[in-house]
Nucleic acid binder design. Structure first.
Length: 212
DNA sequence: CTCCCGATAT
DNA sequence: ATATCAGGAG
């Protein structure tokens, strides 16, 4: 079995095991999803889901968020970390969305990444989950770690990892592959102590023996 | 490359 | 005590 066939086998197996994998961030519309994704940087989704109910109770939409006092915003999201940057970005993003996009989120990668606090990872998550648009593959810390361990890339830069993954993963799987890898990364292929003996793709993983 | 940063697992 | 957690900007 060649390298490409090995990788496709890994993807197929993980898709079967984590078939119901989906976004874990709670939101009731695209704008709330954007705020949640910005908050999720270097923070667990469980923590984000704990603060957003209180945050959206005070500032439920793009209009109210654009006028939110920065100190109140900071206090409401403090526990998610990087709270000064995140508060500043969320407010600036809200103002930009109103001024440049007439209050609605843009539907293209090009426009999406002009929003403060939004890079390719956040844009990919938004386009797929809010609008069903498949522009690329969202590379977060889990996707980066797993793609490297599973031998799908040797790069460390998220943009280069995304390019490598897009060349291997069938386009119809670009949206879902992120959640498949995230779930596998949380349950089995954990950052510190990966559970290789319980891994469904152990036999096809070039990193397995190094952790056993 | 560095900085931002609190919460949690190990 | 320290590594890690749905990253992005300068």
């Amino acid at each position: 079995m060649n390298e490409k066939a090995r990788i496709l086998h890994v993807i197929k197996t993980l898709k079967t095991v984590y078939g119901d994998a989906h976004i874990a961030l709670k939101s009731k519309d695209p704008f709330q999803l954007l705020v949640s994704v910005i908050l999720s940087a270097q923070c667990t989704d469980v923590r984000v889901n704990k603060v957003t109910p209180f945050l959206f109770e005070q500032f439920p939409d793009v209009r109210s968020m654009s006028e939110a006092p920065i100190e109140e915003l900071e206090e409401l999201i403090r526990s998610t970390g990087f709270f000064r940057n995140k508060a500043k970005n969320i407010k600036a993003a809200s103002q930009i969305i109103i001024e440049r996009f007439n209050g609605d989120l843009p539907l293209t990668m090009e426009e999406m990444i002009t929003i403060p606090g939004v890079g390719r990872k956040t844009a990919n998550i938004m386009l797929y989950n809010a609008f069903g648009v498949t522009a690329g593959i969202a590379v977060d810390t889990h996707v980066k770690r797993l793609a490297r361990r599973l031998g799908m890339t040797s790069e460390t830069d998220p943009n280069k990892i995304e390019r490598d993954l897009m060349a291997i993963v069938p386009q119809k799987d670009w949206g879902k592959i992120t959640y498949v890898l995230i779930n596998h990364g949380r349950q089995i292929c954990k950052a510190r102590k990966p559970l290789c003996n319980k891994c469904p793709v152990q036999d096809a993983c070039p990193s397995a023996k190094q952790f056993i």
